[in-house]
């Protein structure tokens, strides 16, 4: 329950911080950190335009997408407190429920009959296919290291000992950051602020969504960011800490994460489309490196 509240809180200001960071780095003042939330709230109260091509899929898909993100958040623990639902193997459920949301997003993009939406859908499906192994191998390494298969048990028995384990922890955080960037369609892979439909990935999928549905999709993105932030934070919330330590650590990690995203977006250009798969596959190799690191820690190479 604590984690849900904290993630929702973090999601309120997360994108705001990214935008603020970018503004400051480019020498502007920028909007307040709650501006994105205000935009979303405005969208919630607006009317909608639906394409005459679209069917019922287009109507329900954003809701299911949002529900899937919420469901995934339910599984995230907070330090040694389990999430709302926690069971052996919930890491698998986590990945698959997110995939379900994505499935609906993709078919709703194809539902509009627009070639641009189809293009975005194709790219999104491809990138999420490529990014999935990285997540699973990362979680496999954690399972190997701790002997557990649920988020809660993994994070509550994860402690750092040797030098290698610090390296592994850092690499894991790096992998999670990049996964979050890919999954949320942020900078080196996709540019959310681009103005050319041909170069968009996620944004072009939702070209036809408007009003409440668009608000849902935007807010789901914020939630997803905060969710990955929470996962990263969990790596550093050494279990046993009291709430008055761990909550500031959590918020700190979220802010830091948002600032990193802002930094990356300010100083990096988007990759060429055909370089994206290489970049994402690199991620899998980093996670394999983590796996090898864990094998080293456990001394299985003897």
């Amino acid at each position: 329950m604590v984690s849900l509240l904290l993630i929702v809180t973090a999601s309120l200001f997360f994108t705001g911080i990214i935008i603020r960071t970018k503004s400051i780095l480019s020498g502007r003042k920028g909007p307040g950190i709650f501006q994105p939330m205000k935009d979303i709230w405005r969208l919630f109260r607006k009317g909608s335009v639906f394409s005459e091509t679209s069917s019922v899929i287009f109507q329900i898909a954003p809701s299911i997408y949002f529900a899937s993100v919420l469901m995934a958040i339910f599984l995230i623990p907070f330090g040694n407190m389990p999430g709302i639902i926690s069971f052996k193997g919930d890491i698998i459920f986590f990945a698959y429920i997110l995939a379900l949301g994505k499935f609906f997003n993709i078919i709703s993009a194809l539902d509009t009959g627009s070639s641009f939406s189809g293009m975005g859908a194709s790219r999104e499906a491809l990138y999420s296919l490529l990014v999935e192994p990285a997540f699973f191998i990362l979680m496999g390494s954690s399972a190997l290291l701790t002997g557990h298969t649920s988020f809660h048990e993994i994070f509550s028995s994860l402690h750092f000992g040797s030098h290698i384990s610090y390296a592994v922890g850092t690499l894991a955080a790096l992998v999670l950051i990049i996964i979050a960037l890919v999954e949320n369609s942020r900078m080196p892979v996709d540019d959310p602020k681009t103005h050319l439909e041909l170069t968009m990935v996620h944004e072009v999928m939702i070209l036809d969504n408007s009003g409440f549905d668009l608000g849902l999709i935007h807010y789901a993105t914020n939630l997803k960011f905060a969710m990955y932030g929470a996962l990263i934070a969990n790596f550093f919330l050494t279990p046993g800490y009291e709430l008055y330590y761990s909550i500031p650590i959590f918020i700190g990690v979220q802010i830091l994460f948002a600032m990193v995203v802002g930094f990356v977006e300010s100083f990096m250009a988007r990759f060429r489309m055909n370089h994206n798969p290489q970049f994402i596959i690199m991620l899998t190799s980093i996670s394999l490196l983590i796996f090898l690191g864990v094998l080293l820690i456990l001394g299985k190479f003897v």
């Binding site: 005459e52 627009s114 439909e197 036809d208």
Partner: peptide, 29 residues
């Protein structure tokens, strides 16, 4: 999860009740 989906679809329905719904051609850029 199923309950969540139903709840969100219901909320959406409630929210869309008072707002204006327009049907138009797909945005072809």
């Amino acid at each position: 999860f199923i309950l969540l989906c139903i709840a969100i679809i219901w909320i959406r329905k409630m929210a869309n009740k008072n707002s204006q719904i327009v049907v138009a051609p797909t945005w072809g850029c």
